[in-house]
Amino acid sequence: MPVYEQGYEAYTGVRKPLGRRWLPLFRDELLPYFRKRRFVFLLLLAMIPWLYGIALTFLHTQLGDAQWAKELAGQLPQVDEALVAKLMANGFDLFLLLVVCIWVGSGLVARDRRDRTLEVFLGRGLGAGQYLWAKGAALGLFLLLFSLLPTLVLVVFQVGLTGDAGWIFVHSRVLWGSLLYTVVGLGSLTVFVLALSSLGRSPRVVGLVLVGIVFFGDAACGILYGITRNPAIWFFSVAKELEVLACRCLGAPPPHFISLPLWLSALFFAGLAALSAGVLFLRFARRGVLQ
């Protein structure tokens, strides 16, 4: 007696265009993290500095015209490019950003390699480019929560509370600088993490390697800087490079001890992105990632 109770039926419905096949994989990568309380807690923690920015906006606009209020407002920092740079690249947020990057990123490709689901995905009508786009978009979206999204919220509050849309034009660099930082810095970081994840079969090992590169690399640079006092040492620190990039993009001066030349920072991110993209291309085009 056959095991099936219902005969096979052909599918006669519509099919989505090839270009939109990445969306289910993107959703599958994204949603499980929002069900993890510890992960959501981390994201909320990262919002704390931005709440400070919103509070500043509130104080500047709502304290009134009393003399004491004006004096207090005068002592508070203005909401401008320098403040956004500080909010975006403060040590606390950068730490959380890198933790999220490692948490989400280490398993992006490595988990599919471990479970042997990568060839199941690529054996479908899904190209390698769409697969990588889905994975990269998931990580990129989380990283946006540390840069562009809070900036936009801050801008909305600023304009809403002051009733002055002209602020956007005066401080337009807040928007395009944040966008540039996101595309260059966090984009490079995403591609780097994807490439590293494609080299391993164990998310845990990839995570440990990332921790080594990001945090131990930073600590090693700190020790070397302590000995040599040469700011060029920070060239090898991902966290400090991101901090410098955020300041440069927003036109704020970076801290003096990590004041790398612009061309050196640009070289770092261009090199990181190019190297990572090259690794991904070789791994996927030659199908080495499936071995």
């Binding site: 599918y11 419905g13 519509v14 099919r15 989505k16 265009p17 090839l18 096949r21 969306l23 289910p24 994989l25 599958d28 199941v120 995905f121 479908r124 009508g125 899904l126």
Partner: peptide, 17 residues
């Protein structure tokens, strides 16, 4: 259903299928 979607089926038909 996820694999059905990756092969081009919209979400609801993929789950039904």
């Amino acid at each position: 259903a996820l694999l059905g979607e990756l092969s081009g089926l919209p979400r609801r038909p993929a789950v039904e299928r």
